[in-house]
């Protein structure tokens, strides 16, 4: 049974222009009282290594000509970082953040190598079981 009050998000990309929508959409889930399960994989997971979130400044290759303009506007308008937005959403709502076990193994990373916002390292089977119960699943 899929539950309309649950959302699952796969975060594959680790660039600012993708991480922003992750944190904003997760906030939307919190506003709507949803449980949100976030699965970080590949480049999305590497962005959550200790000390990394505030350093991320790359934009997807397809939009790289926009990177300087985007970083300028974000700074000039003092927009909260994608990471602070995510931390706030997690503090206020029912958000669970998981590291993909396969990526973690590939890069020899353990739970202590990630920011504390990452709750657990789990396998794809466990995450897809969560997605199976979610009314909404996104891949970002």
């Amino acid at each position: 049974m899929s539950d309309k009050n649950r959302m699952s998000i796969v975060v594959f990309d680790g660039t600012v222009d993708k991480l922003f929508p992750v944190s904003i959409i997760a906030s939307g889930g919190v506003m709507n009282d949803m449980r949100v399960d976030i699965f970080l994989t590949f480049w999305g997971l590497l962005a959550f290594r200790k000390g990394e979130p505030y350093k991320v400044s790359k934009v997807s290759k397809d939009y790289e000509e926009w990177a300087p303009e985007m970083m300028r506007v974000l700074q000039e308008k003092k927009v909260s970082s994608w990471y602070d937005t995510l931390l706030q959403a997690k503090e206020l709502g029912d958000i669970h953040i998981y590291a993909c076990a396969m990526t973690a193994d590939l890069f020899d990373l353990g739970k202590e190598d990630f920011e504390p916002v990452v709750d657990e390292i789990i396998g794809v089977g466990e995450f897809i079981a969560m997605a199976q119960e979610s009314g909404t699943t996104l891949y970002i």
Partner: peptide
Amino acid sequence: RGSFCPGPMMELIRVIR
């Protein structure tokens, strides 16, 4: 003021709680 979506909404949720 000056904060972007979803900032004000999330701030309101925090204060209401």
